[in-house]
Design a protein around this nucleic acid. Structure first.
Lengths: 198, 198
DNA sequence: CATCTAATTAGATATATATCTAATTAAGAG
DNA sequence: CTCTTAATTAGATATATATCTAATTAGATG
């Protein structure tokens, strides 16, 4: 399973000595004794760590005469880097997204909004809902503090159920509330949906 | 220090429960009870893990009435992804590299090679040495098995000290040896120097 | 075959931590 | 102010693991 490998990788990297080893090997290959020397630890200890690194395919070794050189497997590192990155904009690539999304958003807008700008209804499907939330919050200014009353009035121009929508804004991080004062989050924080991740 | 944070991050991610939490939160925000339910664990346990995640800035929380929603901090994930990636082509970006490298390589070639194609000397500086090793190995075929004798003869056309050079080829992964038979590694494995990482 | 070198394995110890139950805190709602 | 709900903190337990020294293995060399 993908998940197990991911855990194993991070567990392996989650040790100061092993991270140091990876740093050292990222510059060039080294043998056990050399690593032990540089880190001030014994050979068995390094052997232990290299073994763990090997189990995750993070290093491989080649014997040269009596000494065994260890190499960093940079491909595997690159792989895990990309796995992490997929977390951040999970599902789809970014570059191809902009245009694709614009169309998708347009479609949702057409389906759920009256010509006068009000919502016909609040879509149940998360993605669609987020499109509409984004559209609505676009009319507010980042950096401005709004009272709850102001927010309610603002939302009412789109839909009568301002309480639900206000709550959605908060939950999906489009805005946040502090002591009854509302503020729009910067776009970079609209993180609940992958689509808007910058 | 950078290193400590890196270790802390991986240590935190190196736990199956926490990875699952990150997975869940990558889709959308959740409160403690919901996570506990989905994972079949108790609230205190989840609280414990969320706390660890918070210490690395991997999550943040917003209170909504009585329930506290947790959000994944995707920026931090992206950061660590890029840190990993820097391992793989440490030092420089890739795109700008090709042209820059070509020139650099050309310069090294001019300085260290005779007009007849033989090496004047073996440079001590790693980077330069790697350029020359690459050049030499370019004359061999990937997928072909060579005897040690053949390799020696081949190397001698560049330099008399074939033993040293042969050893360098191995150490820097340009080729590998098995039971006295030598073989050129595919280019993707020429990983000792960041320059040639694909 | 005997010896030397470098690495690994075995075994011991100390530290860290994931999880649970029970107790406590924090905030809303009546 | 009291009751309810959700979360955190405290404390206990069991498991995992980083490190060391000592013993063993694996190759290379003479």
């Amino acid at each position: 399973m993908q998940l197990d490998k991911q855990v194993a990788f991070h567990k392996t990297m989650g040790d100061p000595t092993r991270i140091k080893i990876v740093h050292l090997l990222s510059v060039g290959s080294l043998h056990v004794g050399a690593i032990a020397g540089k880190l001030g630890l014994t050979a068995p200890t390094i052997s232990h760590h290299l073994n763990k690194l090997k189990e995750c395919n993070l290093v491989y070794s080649r014997r040269e005469k009596n000494t065994i050189y260890y190499f960093l497997n940079k491909k595997v590192l690159a792989h895990h880097s990309s796995v992490l990155e997929r977390f951040t904009n999970q599902g789809e690539g970014k570059s191809e997204m902009s245009e694709k999304i614009m169309k998708e958003k347009q479609k949702v807008m057409n389906n759920f909004m009256e010509k006068n700008g009000r919502l016909k209804s609040i879509p149940a499907q998360q993605k669609k809902k987020l499109f509409l939330l984004e559209h609505m919050v676009d009319g507010l200014e980042v950096g401005t503090k709004y009272s709850e009353k102001e927010i309610n009035e603002y939302i009412k121009q789109f839909h009568d159920d301002f309480a639900t929508l206000r709550r959605e804004f908060i939950i999906h991080q489009f805005m946040f509330r502090m002591n009854g004062i509302y503020e729009v989050n910067p776009r970079e924080m609209w993180g609940s949906t992958p689509l808007y991740k910058q």
